[in-house]
């Protein structure tokens, strides 16, 4: 009766297909990942001399780590949609029997994977280079997980806007950084006590995790609601 409904690809399946395509291309070229990893390492070296410190603790440590992750993430976020823009992916998705949110899920997940790989590399390097006490690192991964989700959600919204504008490279950091301020405040406030020289303290930990979670939730809902408006022509 309704021939137009006969071949709709389920959204999660379509998202998985797009994600697999992105990961395959990334694995083949290593464009984003290699840039992010290299950038983080260089930044640590720069902080070593910029701050003239060989060991860090507390808020200084969390600041160095989180700023490095943030700016490395910006590199990846800027490239999330470049292939779709330059090679016609947006048109192909609009013609295919898939929901626009499939693209959103796929790109958020791709960015989450890149960030996890970045941190799997950068966190040990950071600990070896700067930290004397490693006991807070376990709890720190929970902070990073929630931070990553926020970065990926906001990053995906901003990236699609910047990619479809004529000031792509300019617009990504310009829009992204102010939007991430509350997220970075929460993550830094949660991470600083974990990196104290005399062992981690957890007094305010739940409060900041809750705020990180709230941020992720709200921008997840917004991203999901507005994404269709961002990809139509």
């Amino acid at each position: 009766m309704n021939p137009e409904l006969r071949r709709r690809t389920p959204t999660l399946r379509a998202a998985r297909v797009i994600l697999a395509k992105d990961l395959r291309i990334e694995l083949r070229t290593l464009q984003s990942l290699s840039a992010m990893l290299l950038f983080s390492l260089t930044t640590f070296v720069l902080f070593r001399y910029g701050l003239d410190r060989t060991s860090l603790e507390g808020s200084l440590a969390s600041g160095v780590l989180l700023m490095t992750i943030l700016f490395a993430a910006v590199l990846g976020i800027g490239r999330l949609f470049v292939a779709e823009r330059e090679q016609g992916g947006f048109d192909a998705f609009a013609l295919a029997p898939i929901d626009g949110s499939a693209l959103f899920y796929a790109k958020v997940t791709a960015q989450l994977i890149y960030l996890a790989i970045l941190e799997a590399f950068a966190l040990p390097v950071f600990a070896v280079l700067f930290l004397s006490d490693w006991s807070g690192l376990g709890a720190l991964t929970a902070v990073l997980a929630l931070l990553n989700l926020g970065l990926a959600l906001i990053g995906t919204i901003v990236s699609v806007m910047a990619t479809n504008s004529r000031a792509r490279d300019l617009l990504t950091p310009l829009l992204l950084l102010p939007l991430l301020v509350p997220l970075m405040i929460s993550a830094a406030s949660a991470a600083a006590p974990l990196l104290d020289a005399d062992g981690p303290s957890f007094a305010e930990f739940p409060k900041w995790l809750a705020l990180l979670g709230l941020y992720d939730l709200i921008f997840g809902l917004i991203g999901w609601a507005v994404f269709d408006y961002l990809i139509e022509d």
């Binding site: 829009l175 406030s189 705020l211 408006y229 961002l230």
Partner: peptide, 24 residues
């Protein structure tokens, strides 16, 4: 459309930002 998406995102951002800065 993009300006509207920005206005909505930024609108949600305002209260979150006040909470985060005040708590910090």
């Amino acid at each position: 459309r993009y300006a509207s998406v920005f206005a909505i995102t930024a609108g949600a951002f305002v209260p979150l930002n006040f909470i985060a800065v005040r708590l910090a």
